[in-house]
Design a binder for these strands. Structure first.
Lengths: 160, 160
DNA sequence: TATGAAAGACATCATGT
DNA sequence: ACATGATGTCTTTCATA
C-alpha cells in the first residue's frame, strides 16, 4: 500500500494550501534539496496520491444561498423499477448547474447540495423543480447558513 | 460586478480540469497568444475570481464510507445559551479529522459530513462521539453510497 | 486591452555521491 | 536520499499598437 512519510505529508499540505508553489519554494520552506522535492512530487503523482490540480473559485461566483435536500422516492412493487428511477432522478438533478452535488443515500434516497443566488430562488427551485418530480415520498430541506469547516467546497464545486 | 467573457470562462474551465496547464498550453488550445492568456489569468487572480490553486487527493487516501449527519440540539429556555452551545458543538466537531465539513442549519441544527474507513467505524463514531454529545434532540444519519455529481469533494476535503 | 519578443526563472533529467 | 549541472520550456515583463 502507500507509505507516506513526514516529508510527503508536508509537501501535500503545502500544495493543498497553494498548488502553485514552485519546487524551489517548497524545498526552501522544508529545508530539503529541490531534487528530492521534485522526486517526491513526481512519485505522489504517479501513485495517484495527488489526483489532480485544480482551482477554487472566489465568493463572487458562488451561490449565496445553500441547502442540503434529502429526497426519498416511493417504494414501488417492482424493485427494479425503483433502481432505475433513482438513477434517472440523480442524473436529472446532476444536470442543473445550481445542483452542486448529488449522492445516493440508501435504496430509495438521494442527497443533493443546492446553491442559488438567494433564499427565494432556492425555495422556488426546491418547490418547482424538486417537489414537482413524480413519485416522491418525502423531501426534506436543510438550509445551510454558515460553515465552521469545509466552506471551500462551494467555490470548488461551482461551475462557470 | 464581474464581467467574465468567453475567454475568461474558457480559461477557468481548463484550469478547473487541470490547474497545472501551462500558459502556453492554454494559449495553444484556445488559439490566443500567451501574453493575452497570462494577462487574463493575472486579472482573474487579482479580482479574486480564482480564489486559490489546490490539489485533490486520490482515492487511496479517501475514507471509503461517508455519511451526512443532521444534528438538532434541544431548545433550552435561554436562547443565548443555545447559540453558544451550537457554536461550541460545531467547533468541537470541526476538530475531528474524519469530520470533513461542518455547517449550521437553522437555529438549532448542524449538518456534518463524516468520513471513515468503513461502515462499522462510521457507525461507531456516530454512536460513540456524536450521539454522546449532551442535550441533543435528534441525530439523523444519511449514508452516502455513491455520487453522480461532486464526487471529488472527498479528495478535496480529506486531510493528510 | 491585446500582442510579440526577449530575458529570466523554473522544471526536468542525467550523473555521481 | 542528496548534490550538481545541462537543457529546454515556461513565465513574466515591457514596448507597441
Amino acid at each position: 500500500m502507500i507509505q507516506l512519510d513526514d516529508l510527503d505529508r508536508a509537501i501535500l499540505r503545502l500544495l493543498k494550501e497553494d498548488a502553485r508553489l514552485t519546487i524551489s519554494e517548497i524545498a526552501g520552506r522544508l529545508g530539503r534539496p529541490e531534487s528530492t522535492v521534485h522526486f517526491r512530487i513526481k512519485k505522489l503523482q504517479e501513485q495517484n496520491v495527488i489526483d489532480k490540480y485544480t482551482i477554487v473559485l472566489g465568493e463572487r461566483l458562488q451561490p449565496k444561498s445553500l441547502a442540503i435536500v434529502y429526497i426519498q422516492a416511493e417504494t414501488p412493487i417492482i424493485e427494479d423499477f425503483l433502481e432505475r428511477y433513482i438513477l434517472y432522478l440523480m442524473k436529472t438533478l446532476s444536470m442543473f448547474p445550481n445542483v452542486l452535488a448529488v449522492a445516493r443515500s440508501g435504496k430509495a434516497g438521494i442527497i443533493a447540495l443546492i446553491g442559488e443566488e438567494n433564499r427565494e430562488k432556492l425555495n422556488r427551485f426546491v418547490d418547482e423543480t424538486i417537489r414537482a418530480l413524480p413519485t416522491l415520498k418525502k423531501v426534506e430541506v436543510f438550509p445551510i447558513d454558515s460553515f465552521t469547516k469545509g466552506k471551500e467546497i462551494v467555490g470548488f464545486l461551482v461551475g462557470v
